[in-house]
Design a protein around this nucleic acid. Structure first.
Lengths: 215, 215
DNA sequence: GAAAAAATAACCCATTCGGGTGTATGGGCT
DNA sequence: AGCCCATACACCCGAATGGGTTATTTTTTC
């Protein structure tokens, strides 16, 4: 790892990971214009990203949360396993507080939403390269909004995913090999934790917050 | 309109409309590399797009469906109202059959999904500029899959949107100023047309197919 | 102007749902 | 050992839901 003694004159070496060619292209063209940065690679999958990370040891890695062969969360963990001092920034269109929380928990140093102004991204890259965290206040605010809200347990998540498929409690019980009454218990808990009236609103709120995703 | 006698030597003049700076940047950099194309403008809102369209009379307009101040559907209609021979291509991440159908119904000549390969987009631009339609078979297949499925009526859509908020039939009735029994009638019809078991699945299927969108 | 489609409303009825309360078991942390 | 928490199960009950049928009025379409 040749990051410790990086002098001010050397450009920030950036790797970007996104399965959309347009986004990779856009990132490259934005970053390439900065005199203090350079793109060392653009990967379209997690596997390719890891290969490029090993090969180029970039200073900063930009990562989308949705990838073809893995998730951004997993990729961040994989990269940190290779190099614990790696600096990663999530660049995604997901804005749910749970997505943000999971990304930061996985070890991301920054979280930037696609659709922000160009400067926000560049600032994030410079901050994170300098060892700082960079989470825009609008993003941080979403986390704060749900600080008090209880997290769903693993089992509740299982149930919620089945609920989103339109299954009845009885069917969910059969699918998860538990009693219908247990399912009802979980559903009640889910509704309470999410602060909603019924299972349908539970699903839409969960989608909005990034607790579950379609497909 | 100086499009009729466009000679082969002149580049295809492209306008792109997307509220994400990264995507605009990516499009510009992809198109700029093509010898037979040039970007004449990049708008980040519908209003700006119309202004640029009037100013530059581009040969082809690339349009995202989600814009800050309007929708892609509306923008396509607005552009066609200005210039009935305008050629527009939808470039979006929405893949629901209803999104596709609405876009083509609005007058789009092409429909390309973000995340396709670079060549797909370039081919679409050339095809559409040449007066052809360009809808990739994967996209067309989604339309075909739902050819038989009945469309929801306007009122059913109103009800479905309320359902997605977690409202009860009684509350929906109050919101729409109709009897609860009428709401139940609409809900029954919705479930039948979408081929689902309950209101929750109706919402997730509707989201997937682009019949409704969150927020 | 007639025919078709959509919107409205009212029944019935079995099932499901949401809310309340209580109990039990097995990890994990202190 | 004691405690918390997740998980699992049971029972009660009123309200909401989904399915079936019929009918009137309005709107759209041909």
């Amino acid at each position: 790892m040749s990051k410790g003694q990086m002098s001010k004159g050397q450009p920030i070496r950036v790797l970007c990971v996104d399965d959309h060619a347009i986004v990779r292209e856009g990132l490259m063209s934005i970053v390439a214009l900065q005199p203090d940065m350079e793109i060392v690679g653009a990967a379209e999958s997690g596997a390719e990203a890891l290969k490029m990370f090993r090969e180029f040891s970039p200073d900063v890695v930009l990562i989308d949360l949705r990838l073809r062969d893995t998730t951004g969360f997993e990729l961040i963990r994989d990269i940190l396993a290779l190099s614990p001092s790696a600096r990663t920034i999530v660049l995604t269109s997901f804005e749910g507080d749970v997505d943000i929380e999971r990304a930061l928990a996985a070890g991301a140093k920054g979280y930037v939403v696609k659709g922000m102004v160009r400067e926000e991204l560049l600032e994030a890259i410079r901050d994170v390269h300098a060892g700082k965290r960079h989470v825009p206040s609008a993003i941080a605010a979403k986390l704060v909004d749900h600080l008090a809200s209880e997290k769903l347990t693993h089992r509740e998540l299982d149930v919620l995913k089945e609920v989103s498929k339109g299954k009845r409690n009885k069917e969910i019980g059969a699918a998860l090999s538990i009693a219908e009454d247990t399912v009802k218990m979980h559903v009640k808990s889910i509704l309470m934790k999410l602060g909603v009236n019924d299972r349908t609103e539970a699903v839409t709120i969960a989608l909005r917050r990034g607790i579950i995703h379609l497909q």
